[in-house]
C-alpha cells in the first residue's frame, strides 16, 4: 500500500519533471537504490533522486532542479550564532522533516527560507532568484512560499473566509469571487466549511491551524513551510492538523516541516533532517534516521524523544 503511494507520488514528480525538462530529453531517476522505469508520452524517462543517507543531493548528475537551494547560510542574533554554514536543498514534491532540540535553529532556518529572518550571509535560491539578495523582490517570491506558524497567527480582525481571501485579493492574484471560491474549496478540504463566517478569534486551536493552512493554500504556493504546527495544540487535537498535512503531502505538495511529531516525520517525510546547535548534523531517509542513525547526537536526541 505504501509502496503504491510512493509510486504514485513518483509519478507526480515525474510529471512535473517532464514538464520542466524539454520534450525529448531523457531524465534519470533512482530512488533509494530501486530504479523505476517509466514510459510516458512515448518517452523513456529515468529519474535520479539522490536522497540516499550519506549523499547530499548533488545537482550535477541530476536533471531535476531543486525547488529551494540554500548555500552557506549563516545567521547570528548578537553574539549567538544560530545557523552555521547551512547547505540544504528541497526537491519539488519532496516532504522534508526537520527535527532537533529546541534552540538548535530549526525555526530560524525555516524563516530564512522566506526571509522572515534576513540571513547574515549565504544564498537562498528559489526559481533562479536569490531571496537573500539585496535587490530581490522578496514579496513576489513569498507568494509562492506558504508558511504555517506554531501560534497560527490568523488575522484577528477578520473572519475565517476573509483570512483566506485577504492575500489573493490584495495582491490581485484573482477576482474577489474567485478568491472566495478558492477559500471555500480549501476550507472545505480542511473540514471547516461550517465556519466560513466565524470570527477568527472564536475558533479552537486545531481549527485555527487548519484555517492557517487553508489560508496559505489559497495563494497556491509551490512549497509549504510548517514551523511546529502542532506544538501549541492539545494532544487530542494534534491529529486533525496532522491529517490535513498528510493529505497535502499525498497530493504532492512540497513541504518542509519542523516538527516534534516523530511518528509523522517517520511516516510522511521523504527525508528527515536532524539539526543540532546550528548545523545539519545528519540527514537521510526516515528509515535510516530513525532506524539506524549514524551520529551519536542523533541517537541521543532520538533516545530522549522516543524513550518518553
Amino acid at each position: 500500500m505504501e509502496e503504491l503511494q510512493q509510486t504514485v507520488s513518483q509519478q507526480d514528480q515525474l510529471r512535473e519533471t517532464t514538464q520542466q525538462t524539454q520534450a525529448g530529453e531523457t531524465t534519470q531517476q533512482t530512488q533509494a537504490g530501486e530504479t523505476t522505469q517509466q514510459t510516458q508520452a512515448g518517452e523513456t524517462t529515468q529519474q535520479t533522486q539522490a536522497n540516499t543517507p550519506d549523499a547530499q543531493p548533488s545537482h550535477d548528475n541530476q536533471a531535476a532542479e531543486p525547488l529551494i537551494r540554500i548555500e552557506n547560510l549563516r545567521k547570528s542574533f548578537g553574539d549567538l550564532e544560530v545557523l552555521k554554514d547551512i547547505n540544504f536543498e528541497v526537491m519539488p514534491g519532496e516532504v522534508v522533516s526537520i527535527i532537533g532540540a529546541s534552540g538548535s535553529g530549526k525555526s530560524t532556518l525555516l524563516r530564512c527560507i522566506n526571509l522572515l529572518e534576513v540571513p547574515d550571509s549565504g544564498h537562498v535560491w528559489f526559481h533562479g532568484s536569490d531571496l537573500a539578495g539585496e535587490r530581490t523582490n522578496v514579496n513576489e517570491l513569498r507568494e509562492s512560499i506558504g508558511m504555517v506558524f506554531q501560534s497560527f497567527n490568523l488575522f484577528n480582525n477578520k473572519n475565517v473566509l476573509d483570512n483566506c481571501t485577504l492575500a489573493p485579493v490584495t495582491l490581485k492574484k484573482c477576482s474577489k469571487a474567485e478568491a472566495e471560491e478558492r477559500g471555500r474549496r480549501h476550507l472545505t478540504a480542511v473540514g471547516l466549511a461550517d465556519f466560513i463566517d466565524a470570527p477568527a478569534t472564536s475558533l479552537s486551536g486545531g481549527q485555527k491551524q487548519r484555517v492557517a493552512i487553508a489560508r496559505a493554500l489559497c495563494m497556491e504556493p509551490e512549497i509549504m513551510l510548517f514551523d511546529e504546527p502542532t506544538s501549541a495544540l492539545d494532544p487530542e487535537i494534534v491529529g486533525e492538523v496532522l491529517n490535513v498535512m498528510r493529505d497535502l503531502a499525498a497530493e504532492g505538495m512540497t513541504m518542509v516541516v519542523v516538527t516534534h511529531e516523530m511518528e509523522f516525520a517517520r511516516s510522511v517525510s521523504d527525508r528527515v533532517v536532524f539539526m543540532d546547535a546550528g548545523v545539519i548534523a545528519e540527514q537521510g531517509s526516515p528509515e535510516d534516521i530513525f532506524g539506524n542513525p549514524r551520529e551519536p547526537r542523533t541517537r541521543e536526541f532520538l533516545a530522549r524523544y522516543l524513550g518518553e
Partner: peptide
C-alpha cells in the same frame, strides 16, 4: 509575519 509570509508588502 503571517501577512508578510503570504506576500503582502
Amino acid at each position: 509575519e503571517a501577512a508578510r509570509s503570504l506576500g503582502l508588502s
